[in-house]
Design a protein around this nucleic acid. Structure first.
Lengths: 251, 251
DNA sequence: TGCGCGCATTGATCTGAGTCAAACGGGGCG
DNA sequence: CGCCCCGTTTGACTCAGATCAATGCGCGCA
């Protein structure tokens, strides 16, 4: 999440580590366990969980899931950041969301992956083969319940974002984006003031339904008003939360 | 779905029918069963299902679920159409979706309803008390699996809509809307050419992130080009599907 | 049959955000 | 060390869709 290495562009198949240590330890020691769906599985059954998974490592820029393809794998993010996106025929792009530690990738209709996924930073993923994942769901009702809760949350989050895209001004969108980022950072034990943005202005624009230029202008406007500050484009400090909140609500 | 009665404005508590016929028949004969999550429950267990539900009837305009409230009830639509929406502090509105026969209402975070729900036509709902619904989920793993599949679909549908809101032009949005409506109508055994739109232009505008005027203008433009036709605003005929498809894809 | 009320349409004008274009600047590489 | 590349910023201008403002019209009702 700090520096962004070379940028080997999207080898379809990524470096994979198998069977390092035997199962129990791997899942038991997983840095993402506390915040991922796996915490629905008891300590003493972690080895079975581990047997169903493979750890995958990706470099920034690598696309590991393609819109429209058959969903062979599901993932949990162990570390790093990922973006989900959709492309239109003419090249327009919509970024659907940004994911991090603990987030699950795998919802959608059973026949086609709903959107592509790309690593923003170095990423470590926990990969489930689809069939095995289904077996896990059948074996562990708690896991299924957990997943339903997560999907249900995601539905609500999606509705929130639709509202943003359908009805908010550029300033409101950017303010909400920054506040949401701060909250996410805080949830993972980070600062709620100093943000590291793993994505480019272009990613933000495609996420907020704006252009790069507009995003850039709003950022500078917010800086000039003293609501935020930054030295580099990717590390922003929120100087005035209440002010941002007011803007995000149409103030 | 044909004519729109008086419009008794939102009595908070709607007419409720209880225990008409005993359980088995009610759910066994339900017109929505084939297309709702209830088809995950076996014939011989329908009486238990029926015992957990209450049938509710609503008139157009009645709001039966409020954004932000605690989610006491979950619903299945037996007949009629419903819109989900969110309001901003200053009155701006986003319509999140339109639902019909068989659709489930109840996803979202466990603490707060994500968006309000209003009847567009006369509506008949099957209402589950939240606690009882949870028990049902625990009792019938198939039901839970079904619900997860539905939630997962909804996530994908939401992502599609975000793309529309973030990146499509007004013409593209309206064309996609009409095609999606046609598909939905077809799925329920209706025509895929002649559409009855249970919502107003204002609802459509808030759904597509546009204004009433723009929606109206696009409709007339599509009509002038011979792609659609209509005598009244609410019953549209799709004259040229391929043409609409082309527009919806940025042609 | 005629009236009134909401929704819908249409037109004229405005504007927030997009487009086009240029310059800046930081990080990696030769 | 300095150059190059790519992401970012900034500025000038444009435009799709919003806003403001009538007018139209179908439907329920008296």
């Amino acid at each position: 999440m700090t520096t962004v290495p070379p940028g080997t562009k999207a080898e379809p198949c990524a470096r994979i580590e198998r069977g390092q240590g035997c199962g129990v330890e791997r899942c038991g020691l997983c840095e993402a366990r506390a915040v991922s769906i796996c915490n629905a599985i008891e300590e003493d059954q972690l080895s079975e969980l581990a047997r169903a998974t493979t750890v995958v490592e990706l470099a920034p820029g690598e696309v590991f899931r393609n819109e429209g393809a058959s969903p062979e794998y599901l993932f949990n993010i162990i570390s790093g950041s990922v973006k989900l996106f959709k492309l239109l025929a003419d090249g327009r792009r919509a970024v659907i969301g940004f994911l991090t530690v603990g987030d699950f990738i795998g919802f959608g209709r059973p026949d086609a992956v709903p959107c592509s996924a790309e690593a923003l930073t170095n990423v470590r993923l926990c990969r489930f083969e689809r069939g095995k994942f289904r077996v896990l769901l059948e074996t562990y009702p708690k896991l299924e319940r957990r997943l339903l809760a997560v999907a249900s949350d995601e539905v609500a989050a999606g509705q929130e974002h639709m509202t943003l895209l359908g009805r908010l001004t550029a300033d409101e969108r950017v303010a909400r984006f920054l506040l949401a980022r701060a909250e996410a950072s805080q949830r993972l034990g980070g600062s709620s003031k100093d943000l590291e943005l793993p994505m480019t202005r272009s990613d933000i624009a495609d996420y907020l339904g704006l252009t790069i230029e507009t995003v850039s202008r709003v950022f500078t406007r917010l800086r000039r008003k003293g609501l935020i500050d930054y030295k580099t484009a990717r590390s922003v400090t929120l100087q005035d939360r209440p002010g941002l909140l007011a803007i995000s609500e149409g103030g």
